[in-house]
Design a protein around this nucleic acid. Structure first.
Lengths: 162, 162
DNA sequence: CGGCATGATGTTATAAAGTAGCATTCTGAG
DNA sequence: CTCAGAATGCTACTTTATAACATCATGCCG
């Protein structure tokens, strides 16, 4: 299990944050015999540059700059891999992607998406979710995946533009 | 405030369900001086045919068949109106739309999306959400909109394909 | 009633997001 | 070394969504 980093909206030493996240992914890949190939790593590193969501085509630009594939399927396959293994999450409201900062496997995290700075924080899966899941189950519905996204404005942006 | 209908996954008299929903929207439009123009009504009625999510282009086909606009902006504008006023919701995971069955204004509903029958049930905004919102607020984040979507299999489909 | 501001419809054209299918290359097990 | 499977990369395409502009309807004010 990867460690949880600081929140996207907290001030923090990001180069350390990024290194730690990358190291954690490398370790998990080693442990699980997964291949963090050049395009996959390039996409992951781009996402680790900040806590901002990036679109597939923004990421594709990075691949192109890196001399890797320049066509959409390349980035989508890299993203498929990263999402499938929980290293990256898709933000549905944005059709965009963020690096996972939270570590634990197939959790149902809540994403706080700031519309000002476009950063995304992955809030820890709260106990509060259970009642939601119970409610669904009581109706006979089997939940396989949960998407919880809150769009709003983060503390820092609220202070800057009150 | 519009009344809540039966759940999408419950057996029910749908023609009655649909009539009631349409009547409720008409009434609300009258009350709020909103214009349910032909394309808007056509889109709404298509969505009220069932509890299934429909894509913008499926809805556009209905507009075309009805002799209304045949180009994407027409359906997107109708959807903008219907979503803005809470008559229709967008299901992010599907890039698709469902009629609102739940009535209350800007609630944060949870959508149960069945991957077998493609029906979508709008579960009532649960008290359980408050802790999620509190958690965000405690971090200084101001939530403006909440998206909660559960993908899985509904009771009926679970019985049919166990 | 006429004029006019506003809002709604409809069009063409284009952007953005994502996928199908196939050839080639890499990797690792035998 | 060989070969199967996985990964890359490409071309071509589909699906989803928006920009920009002309036209038409609605309703308010004089």
């Amino acid at each position: 299990m990867r460690p949880s980093g600081p929140g996207a909206f907290e001030r923090h030493d990001h180069s350390r944050c990024r290194e730690a996240a990358l190291a954690a992914v490398l370790q998990e890949c080693a442990a699980q015999r997964l291949r963090l190939t050049p395009p996959r790593r390039c996409v992951l590193e781009a996402l680790l540059e900040g806590h901002k969501a990036m679109t597939a085509y923004e990421l594709l630009d990075r691949l192109r700059e890196a001399g890797l594939g320049s066509q959409p399927p390349v980035v989508y396959r890299a993203l498929d891999f990263l999402v499938e293994h929980g290293f990256v999450h898709r933000i549905e409201r944005l059709s965009a992607f963020v690096a996972c900062t939270h570590g634990e496997g197939q959790h149902s995290a809540m994403f706080l998406v700031c519309r000002e700075c476009h950063r995304v924080e992955e809030a820890a899966s709260p106990v509060a979710l259970n009642p939601l899941e119970d409610q669904a189950r009581n109706q006979g519905f089997r939940i396989d995946r949960m998407t919880i996204e809150a769009e709003g404005v983060c503390g820092g942006c609220l202070e800057r533009a009150p």
